[in-house]
């Protein structure tokens, strides 16, 4: 169990805010980001914080842009999601983003804030740089504003067949599992499929069409580790591939960014160990 103490697991102090590459390096013409407009704070606001937010309107012919919103912190809750809701209610009702539970369990409001992925509902505004930057999840096709198209990563999730598979005829009552066997799922079953890890993985940036990515692989291990499952071999067959599994180079941006404190990197290492074990 992980209790979220701060809105990040390790201090985010770094020498560089971003890699020293041109802003639009290798970017297709439709993805180039332009300058947007500034929405100044309302008169009378005392504590003001600027948010630079990625905007994209699919109904116009315009490219994505970066709008600046000045948020009145005395009128707004403590989390980045509160700021987004405040902007939508008070400044620009067209600002679009996914949100539901506002307590870190639904995984809807995953986005790239100040250069790392997290849930907007569990990141404190006070932890954000000035100006704060909010982008949709990195390396995703964007439907509108902060709403990414997750079709492909969910298709990759479907590929690992995330359900219990058995051959033994269904028992009259439950399928028994010892407490020890059950505990092997701890740290894996809690995944909320926010795709913070997959979106933050450089290997998935360059080979996302073939590499399954940390989220799908962590889920794959959750079923490999399940003592009740009877399809371990078939599951490993699906995974053992130079791209699907072995494109993971243990960069560990995934473990670094998981807002649930899970460890996709460790899960992938366990899969690699299983594949090796059945060959030697």
């Amino acid at each position: 169990m992980m209790i979220i103490r701060s809105s990040d697991q390790v201090p985010r102090t770094t020498l560089l805010k971003r890699f020293p590459v041109p802003r639009n390096l290798g970017v297709g013409p439709e993805s180039r980001i332009g300058r947007g407009k500034t929405w100044p704070a309302l008169a009378g606001a005392v504590r003001v914080k600027a948010f630079e937010i990625y905007r994209y309107d699919p109904d116009s012919d315009d490219n994505p842009r970066l709008d600046t919103f000045e948020v009145d912190l005395d009128d707004c809750g403590p989390m980045v999601l509160d700021a987004l809701i405040w902007i939508k209610n008070k400044v620009d009702p067209t600002l679009t983003f996914r949100r539901s539970c506002r307590e870190g369990i639904c995984g809807s409001c995953a986005m790239t804030m100040d250069g790392t992925n997290w849930l907007a509902c569990t990141r404190f505004i006070s932890d954000m740089a000035a100006p704060a930057t909010v982008y949709p999840l990195a390396n995703m096709r964007i439907i509108k504003d902060l709403v990414p198209d997750l079709t492909h990563v969910f298709a990759q999730y479907a590929m690992i067949e995330p359900w219990l598979q058995t051959r033994t005829p269904e028992p009259e009552r439950e399928r028994p599992q010892s407490p020890e066997e059950r505990s092997r799922l701890d740290g894996y079953y809690e995944c909320i499929l926010c795709f913070c890890c997959t979106s933050g993985c450089p290997s998935h940036w360059w080979n996302g069409d073939r590499f399954l990515g940390p989220a799908a692989l962590l889920q794959a291990y959750r079923w490999l580790a399940d003592s009740r499952d009877e399809a371990t071999g078939e599951r490993l067959d699906i995974l053992e591939d130079p791209f699907r599994l072995y494109r993971c180079h243990t960069i560990l941006n995934c473990t670094r960014t998981c807002p649930k404190g899970l460890n996709p990197g460790k899960a992938i290492a366990e899969i690699k160990k299983m594949v090796l074990e059945r060959r030697t």
């Binding site: 971003r18 890699f19 590459v21 802003r23 970017v27 982008y135 949709p136 990195a138 995703m140 450089p202």
Partner: peptide, 9 residues
Amino acid sequence: RPLSPNIQI
């Protein structure tokens, strides 16, 4: 659809 930035940000 535009691709959201990755290494750039």
